Simulated assay, not measured.
Amino acid sequence: MSTKSMPVLTLQGARTAVAAAEKRAQEIGVPMNIAVVDSSLHLLAFARMDGAKLTSVDIAINKAFTAAGHRAPTSIYKDNVWPGGPAFGINNSNGGRFMTIAGGVPVVQDGVVVGAVGCSTGTPPQDEDVAGKGVEAVVKTFGPKAKL
């Protein structure tokens, strides 16, 4: 067979993620830039909350890009990207878009990465928490076969 059917993150799913992430950002009192990409790494939805850092717009988008493209949360790089680490310099790959700061979380459905949520403005743990709430909302809304 030369083709394969795969689950796809829809615009509705992306909007669900953004809404849940916005809600969590409000709960913790940190306005965020929130980006959602599909499995082909293209932007599906974006929100810049009032007060979110303007310099974090690209960071949020690139966190989502990295999490979807590498099929892993961006937080996994923390201990490996320092000088001498096994992934030192990886942030220069993909035209400088590869993000090694927590806040990018993939959306997995039926064992397939269908996209990712990236958040930026807070601390790395805050960004990851907010992105994670977006992912959780998509998984909860779109089926029990979806998993993190």
Rank of each mutant, 00 (worst) to 15 (best):
V112W: 09
N33W: 06
P86F: 07
G96E: 04
P106A: 10
N33C: 14
E136T: 10
P125W: 00
M1F: 13
A67K: 09
M1E: 15
A146S: 14
N94A: 10
A146W: 02
A19H: 05
S75E: 12
A14D: 12
V139Y: 03
A25P: 02
G84E: 03
H70S: 11
K145H: 09
A14V: 12
D79Y: 09
D79I: 02
L11N: 09
V108P: 14
A47G: 12
V113R: 14
D38W: 15
L148D: 13
C119V: 13
G118F: 08
L148Y: 15
K63A: 05
D58H: 03
P124D: 12
N91K: 10
F46C: 14
A137D: 04
D129C: 00
V105G: 11
S93L: 02
V113N: 11
A17R: 07
T74H: 10
C119I: 05
L9V: 13
I101D: 03
G122K: 00
V105R: 02
A72R: 14
W82P: 00
N92I: 00
V105I: 13
A68R: 06
F98P: 00
V36Q: 10
V81G: 06
W82M: 02
E128G: 11
G84F: 05
T16Y: 06
D127C: 05
P106L: 10
M49V: 07
Q109A: 13
N62I: 09
I90F: 09
G115I: 11
L11Q: 11
R97P: 12
A131Y: 03
T55W: 00
G111S: 13
S40W: 08
A52K: 01
K133C: 14
T100W: 03
G104N: 03
Y77T: 03
G111T: 09
T55N: 07
T141Q: 07
S40K: 07
V105T: 12
E27H: 05
N94G: 08
R48S: 06
G104P: 12
I28P: 03
R24A: 05
G111K: 06
V105E: 12
A21R: 10
A87P: 13
L44T: 14
K78N: 15
S75H: 15
A72G: 06
G51L: 00
S93D: 01
S56A: 15
V57Q: 04
N92V: 03
V135F: 07
T141C: 03
P7D: 00
G122Y: 01
L148I: 15
A17K: 01
G111Q: 11
G89P: 04
T3F: 08
V113E: 07
T66G: 04
G51I: 02
A17Y: 07
I76D: 02
